[in-house]
Simulated assay, not measured.
Amino acid sequence: MDIVENATSILDYTAGLDRQAFSGNRLIRDAVERCLERISEAASKLGSTAETLLPHHPWRHIRDLGNILRHAYDSVDEEVVWSIVTKQLPALIIDARNAAANLPDDT
């Protein structure tokens, strides 16, 4: 599942970093933003299935984030990105893995 794969990559890239180290590492920030774009695109492709499978996540915001990262990249708030990485992605990974494990094998 693209969401789990990219979210896990983000956590791998940022492991051991604090907010300041994240802010000071452009390569990691760029990689994180690219993975967030992929998560946003995967959420768009899932459509309403995302809300059905994982109703406790802000899917509209996840989809909108991709547009911000693609079109308003010069005004991306690093604090918001860091908050997503540290507060939202861990739960999303757990919930998405659980949802995938409960899907029938033919999906």
Results as ranks from 00 to 15, higher is better:
66 G>H: 04
55 P>V: 04
53 L>E: 11
105 D>R: 09
13 Y>L: 13
34 R>T: 00
73 Y>H: 15
106 D>W: 06
47 G>K: 06
26 R>H: 01
3 I>L: 12
71 H>L: 08
92 L>A: 12
2 D>Q: 06
97 R>D: 12
30 D>R: 10
98 N>A: 14
1 M>I: 10
34 R>D: 11
87 K>S: 13
71 H>N: 15
107 T>C: 11
39 I>V: 09
90 P>V: 08
103 L>W: 03
98 N>D: 15
9 S>A: 06
63 R>G: 05
38 R>L: 15
17 L>N: 02
66 G>E: 07
30 D>G: 01
60 R>K: 11
100 A>D: 15
35 C>Y: 00
92 L>N: 09
59 W>V: 13
102 N>F: 04
78 E>V: 05
69 L>A: 03
96 A>W: 06
60 R>V: 03
27 L>C: 03
22 F>G: 01
20 Q>I: 07
75 S>G: 09
37 E>A: 00
106 D>V: 01
52 T>W: 06
103 L>S: 04
42 A>Y: 03
42 A>F: 01
36 L>Y: 05
78 E>F: 05
97 R>S: 05
71 H>A: 08
70 R>A: 07
50 A>P: 10
1 M>G: 15
53 L>R: 07
7 A>W: 01
36 L>C: 02
67 N>V: 05
17 L>M: 14
44 S>Y: 00
55 P>F: 00
78 E>Q: 15
48 S>P: 02
12 D>A: 09
99 A>M: 08
49 T>P: 06
101 A>K: 12
103 L>E: 12
103 L>M: 13
92 L>W: 06
37 E>T: 01
25 N>Y: 02
74 D>N: 14
2 D>Y: 01
22 F>Y: 13
80 V>H: 03
70 R>H: 07
84 I>E: 08
10 I>H: 00
105 D>M: 07
73 Y>Q: 13
98 N>R: 14
99 A>T: 04
15 A>P: 03
81 V>S: 11
84 I>T: 10
3 I>G: 04
48 S>Q: 10
77 D>Q: 11
1 M>P: 14
14 T>V: 09
13 Y>P: 07
75 S>A: 14
3 I>E: 04
5 E>F: 09
82 W>I: 04
50 A>F: 08
32 V>H: 04
12 D>E: 15
97 R>L: 09
22 F>Q: 00
71 H>S: 10
85 V>P: 11
4 V>C: 04
8 T>L: 07
22 F>W: 03
30 D>A: 05
33 E>V: 01
33 E>W: 02
